[in-house]
Design a protein around this nucleic acid. Structure first.
Length: 830
DNA sequence: TATTCCCCGCCAGGGT
C-alpha cells in the first residue's frame, strides 16, 4: 500500500500534513517542489533555479521537515521545550534577508506544530544570543557566509555541526564568482568533513553557467548525486519602454535622464507601488528630487534607498514597501535582493541595465507571486540605450543570460580560512590540504602553494618573519593551531572579504545619522556648501573625528555627492546581442518600438558611414579642429575598450612617433592624435595581433599602480592589515598607507610573494577583464574591418568625442559646446 | 543644467 494514502483513524502521514498546510493557503504544490522533496528524502543534493517569488523556498525547506516527521511520526513525543539539535543551516547573502527568511521558515513549523527551533545569527544578533547559540544551536540556523566562518572558529559548535543534515544557500548566483562565494565553498568543505553525507541545496536565479554553479556548490566529490531542478518557468514578464517625445540623433553620454521625468511621473499615476532602479547613488538622489518636483503631492509617499544611507532609514523604507504605504522608491541595486515586496506592481529601470540577467532580476521584483505578471518600464537616458533594451529583451527571450566566472584560487582568502580553522580546533597540513582541494575553486591548489600559505600564516612569509605580529599560527605536534587570545579576537574581528571603502559618517549636529559619504567628496566641500543627500538639503558645518556634521539648509544645492564605485561595463552577452540588433538594422530590419524609435539615428549613421553588421568591425577616422580622431567600435563594454585602446595606442606609437589621448565607452573607443595617424596596422589587424597581448596591455597601462590598489584588498583579507572594529574603522588613508608599505616591502625583499602574483592576476581578470579582451581580439581578427572617413561626426562617434571634450571643459561650457555641435550636426543631417 | 558608475559582511566575555 502507498504509505501516503489516507487511512481512517491513523496518524496523518508526512505528505498529508504538508498537503493540509498547502490546502489551508489555497495552494497546490508544483511538480518541481515535489521533485525536490523526493530528492531530499533520497539523500540527494540539488540546485533549484527560477525567477523569484515562485515557491523555491518551500521546495527546499519542506524536504528536511518531511524527513524529520517521517523519523518522528508520533506528535505526542514532540516536545517544544527540547527542540532537536541542528539539522539545517541556511545561508543568505544579506542580513535583511536573514530576518525575513527566519520569519518565512517559521510559518510551516508553527502550522505543523513541530518542536523545531528556527533562529538567525548575523552581526546584528546580540552577543547573549550568540553565546547561547554556541552552547546549543537551534534546529535550523539562518546565517551569512561571514557568520558561518566565525561559527567555525568556535570548537564548541563543531561537535554539534557534525550532526548537520543539510546546508541551503539562498541566492547562490549572487555569491558565486565572488570571494564571498569562495569563502562559502571553504566552509562547506569543512562541514562535509564533519559529516560526509551532508546534503547541499541552493536556490538560484537562472545563470549562463548553471553547470559550473553546481560544481562550485558541491565540490569535486559529490557530482553524481546533484541535479539541476527547473523551478516554475512560466512566469510572465512584460517589458515596455517609455519612449522620449523627441529623439536626439546625436545623443551624448552622461545624460542622467531627468528630461524623461515628466513622462515617468505621468506613467506612475496609474501604479500602486513602484521601484525605480537607477545605476548610481547620485542618480538616485537626483531622480528622487526630480519626481518630487513633478508631483509635490507625493511628498511622504516617495522615498529613496541606496547603500550609503543609514540602515535605520533603509529599514523604514523597506517596511514602507512591505506594507504598500509608499507610492514609489528610487533605488540602486541595493533593492535587487532582499525582502519580498508583494505589493510592488511596477519596476522602472532608468538607464541601461548593462546586463540581461540584471534586467530580469529587477523585473522580477514586481508581481512577486507565481501567477502575477512582472512589469518593467524602461526609461532610456539616451537614444542608443533603446538598442540595448531591445538587445536585452532578445537575450532574455533566448535565455542567453550572463555567466558568473569562478575565481582562480585566491590565496588571501585561503590564508584567512586556514587561520579560522586553526582557531577552531586546529588542523594537520595533510588533512586541510585535502579538504581545501575538495572545493571546486581550489581543486588545482599545488603543494607548493599550500606550503607557502602555511609559511605565511606561521611566520608572515620570508620578509616578515622577524616580526612577532605576523606569527599568528603555531605548529605543535604536527597540528597548526592558534593559542594566543589576542590573535583569535583580532582574526574574528576581521573575517570576511568585503573591504572598507573610504567613506565618512554624515550626522546632524543633533547626532542623528544620515549615512556615509565619500571622503574625497567631503574634502572638496567648503563649510556651508549646500548639497543633497538622503533626499535632504543640508550644508556642511564641520568635520571632526572622521565624522561630517551637517545641518538642514535652505537655498539652491550646488552639488550631489559622488561616490567612487565599481564600474559596470556592458556584459559580454549583451554586447553580442547589441551587435546582432545592429546587424538587423544594417539589413533594414527594425523590430519592436525601441528599434523603430532609433531608426532616424541609425539612418544618419548609415548615410554618413555604415551600420556595422555582426561580422564587421567599423573604424571611422575624422579630422576635427582638435586633431585626428580614430573611432573603433567593437561593442564589448567599457573595460575591454580601455584595454584595447591602451593596446592600440601603445603598439601604434611604437611605429609612429606620436602620442595619443584616449576615450572609451561601452560601444567603442577613440584615439586622438595631433598628427595624422597611419591606420594600416589597425586595418590589417596587426594592432590586434595576439602575441604578448596581455603583457603589452599591462605595459601600456599603469599596471603597477593598479596592482597596488588591488593589493589593498588582498592585504586586508589575508590579515596583514587589521581594519579595526566594525563601525569603528580606521581611516582609509591609514589603511592605504600600510597596505602600500607591505606592497613595497614585498616587491623589494620578497618578490616571489604569491600575494603579489595574485594582485597582478586579479588586475588582469577583474580590472581588465582579460578573458573578454582575448575573445574580443579573436573575434575582431575574424571580422571584416571596415574603414570609413565620414565628413562629420556620426551618431556613434558623437558621445565618444563629448567624453574627450569633457576633460578640457567645465560642465557649463561643455553643455554649450555640445548643444552647438548637436545643432550643426542635426542641420547637416537634414 | 547635468554630472557617472552597485552591492554585500563583521567580536567576545564578563559585568549588571
Amino acid at each position: 500500500m502507498n504509505e501516503d494514502s489516507p487511512e481512517r483513524g491513523k496518524v496523518p502521514t508526512p505528505l498529508q500534513r504538508i498537503g493540509k498546510y498547502f490546502q489551508r493557503r489555497g495552494w497546490k504544490p508544483f511538480p518541481f517542489q515535489k521533485t525536490c522533496w523526493r530528492m531530499y528524502q533520497a539523500g540527494d543534493s540539488g540546485i533549484v533555479h527560477s525567477a523569484t517569488g515562485t515557491g523555491k523556498t518551500l521546495a527546499v525547506w519542506l524536504g528536511p521537515i518531511l524527513k524529520w516527521v517521517r523519523e518522528n511520526p508520533n506528535p505526542d513525543k514532540w516536545n517544544p521545550k527540547r527542540p532537536p539539535p541542528i539539522r539545517v543551516l541556511w545561508i543568505t547573502p544579506i542580513r535583511a534577508l536573514a530576518s525575513d527568511t527566519e520569519f518565512n521558515l517559521r510559518d510551516p513549523i508553527d502550522q505543523l506544530g513541530l518542536p523545531w527551533k528556527v533562529e538567525s545569527r548575523t552581526g546584528d544578533s546580540g552577543s547573549s544570543t550568540k553565546s547561547r547559540q554556541l552552547r546549543r544551536l537551534p534546529t535550523a540556523l539562518i546565517t551569512t557566509p561571514e557568520s558561518l566562518s566565525l561559527l567555525l572558529t568556535h570548537e564548541k559548535s563543531l561537535e554539534q555541526l557534525s550532526g548537520l543534515e543539510s546546508i541551503v544557500i539562498d541566492e547562490w548566483h549572487e555569491l558565486m564568482g565572488t570571494k564571498r562565494g569562495v569563502q562559502t565553498e571553504l566552509c562547506m568543505a569543512r562541514l562535509r568533513k564533519l559529516n560526509p553525507k551532508l546534503q547541499t541545496w541552493a536556490l538560484s536565479a537562472t545563470l549562463g553557467n548553471l553547470d559550473q554553479a553546481v560544481d562550485a556548490l558541491v565540490g569535486n566529490e559529490n557530482l553524481s548525486e546533484t541535479q539541476i531542478i527547473e523551478g516554475y518557468q512560466k512566469k510572465k514578464i512584460v517589458f515596455e519602454s517609455i519612449i522620449p517625445n523627441q529623439i536626439e540623433r546625436f545623443p551624448w553620454t552622461g545624460h542622467i535622464g531627468t528630461k524623461m521625468s515628466p513622462q515617468v511621473a505621468d506613467y506612475l499615476e496609474s501604479v500602486n507601488n513602484a521601484l525605480i532602479f537607477t545605476n548610481t547613488r547620485a542618480q538616485t538622489e537626483i531622480w528622487y528630487q526630480e519626481i518630487l518636483k513633478q508631483r509635490p503631492q507625493w511628498a511622504g509617499k516617495l522615498a529613496l534607498h541606496h547603500g550609503s544611507l543609514d540602515s535605520d532609514v533603509r529599514k523604514w523604507v523597506e517596511q514602507g514597501l512591505q506594507t504598500g504605504k509608499l507610492k514609489a522608491v528610487v533605488c540602486t541595486s541595493s533593492l535587487d535582493l532582499g525582502v519580498d515586496f508583494t505589493s510592488v506592481d511596477l519596476v522602472v529601470q532608468v538607464g541601461s541595465p548593462k546586463g540581461a540577467a540584471r534586467l530580469l532580476q529587477r523585473a522580477g521584483r514586481s508581481g512577486h507571486q507565481p501567477d502575477a505578471v512582472s512589469k518593467l518600464a524602461f526609461v532610456p537616458t539616451n537614444a542608443i540605450e533603446l538598442i540595448e533594451l531591445a538587445a536585452a529583451q532578445q537575450a532574455i527571450k533566448e535565455n542567453d543570460l550572463e555567466s558568473r566566472k569562478c575565481l582562480s584560487k585566491p590565496l588571501d582568502l585561503l590564508a584567512q580560512h586556514a587561520i579560522s580553522i586553526a582557531i577552531g580546533g586546529g588542523f594537520t597540513s595533510e588533512e586541510l590540504f585535502d579538504e581545501v582541494r575538495s572545493t571546486y575553486t581550489y581543486h588545482s591548489l599545488t603543494k607548493r602553494e599550500w606550503d607557502w600559505v602555511l609559511n605565511f600564516i606561521q611566520f608572515g612569509g620570508d620578509s616578515l618573519n622577524a616580526y612577532p605580529d605576523f606569527k599568528r599560527v603555531l605548529l605543535r605536534d604536527g597540528r597548526y593551531q592558534v593559542t594566543d587570545r589576542k590573535v583569535m579576537t583580532a582574526h574574528r574581528m576581521n573575517i570576511g572579504t568585503i573591504t572598507a571603502d573610504s567613506s565618512m559618517v554624515v550626522k546632524y549636529l543633533s547626532g542623528k545619522r544620515l549615512g556615509m559619504v565619500e571622503e574625497t567628496f567631503l574634502s572638496r566641500l567648503e563649510t556651508d556648501d549646500i548639497f543633497t543627500f538622503a533626499g535632504k538639503q543640508i550644508s556642511l558645518v564641520r568635520i571632526k573625528d572622521n565624522i561630517a556634521y551637517v545641518r538642514k539648509a535652505k537655498g539652491k544645492p550646488n552639488t550631489v555627492p559622488r561616490w567612487m564605485g565599481g564600474r559596470m561595463p556592458l556584459s559580454a552577452e549583451l554586447g553580442e546581442h547589441l551587435r546582432k540588433k545592429l546587424d538587423e538594422a544594417a539589413k533594414g530590419i527594425f523590430r519592436g518600438p525601441e528599434m523603430k524609435t532609433v531608426k532616424p539615428l541609425l539612418h544618419v549613421q548609415k548615410k554618413w558611414s555604415i551600420i556595422p553588421s555582426a561580422d564587421q568591425m567599423l573604424v571611422e577616422s575624422i579630422k576635427t579642429k582638435v586633431g585626428w580622431q580614430v573611432f573603433v567600435y567593437s561593442f564589448e563594454g567599457r573595460l575591454v575598450h580601455e584595454g584595447l585602446a591602451a593596446l592600440a595606442a601603445y603598439r601604434l606609437s611604437k611605429s609612429q612617433r606620436t602620442t595619443f589621448s584616449l576615450a572609451c565607452n561601452d560601444y567603442g573607443f577613440v584615439l586622438q592624435s595631433p598628427k595624422p595617424v597611419d591606420l594600416q596596422s589597425i586595418l590589417n589587424g596587426e594592432v590586434f595581433r595576439t602575441d604578448s597581448l596581455l603583457d603589452d596591455i599591462m605595459q601600456s597601462m599603469n599596471s603597477t599602480e593598479m596592482s597596488k590598489r588591488q593589493f589593498r584588498q588582498i592585504a586586508r583579507i589575508a590579515g596583514l592589515i587589521q581594519q579595526g572594529l566594525p563601525h569603528r574603522q580606521k581611516t582609509a588613508k591609514h589603511l592605504m598607507a600600510s597596505s602600500n608599505l607591505f606592497f613595497d616591502v614585498f616587491c623589494t625583499y620578497d618578490p616571489s610573494n604569491l600575494l603579489l602574483e595574485q594582485a597582478r592576476r586579479e588586475v588582469l581578470e577583474q580590472q581588465l577583464e582579460s578573458d573578454r579582451i582575448l575573445s574580443a581580439v579573436d573575434r575582431i581578427r575574424e571580422s571584416e574591418i571596415v574603414h570609413r572617413t565620414p565628413e562629420r561626426l556620426t551618431p556613434l562617434a558623437f558621445p565618444l568625442l563629448v567624453d574627450k571634450l569633457r576633460e578640457r571643459l567645465s560642465s557649463e561650457t561643455l553643455a554649450d559646446r555640445v548643444a552647438r555641435m548637436q545643432r550643426q550636426l542635426e542641420k547637416a543631417a537634414g
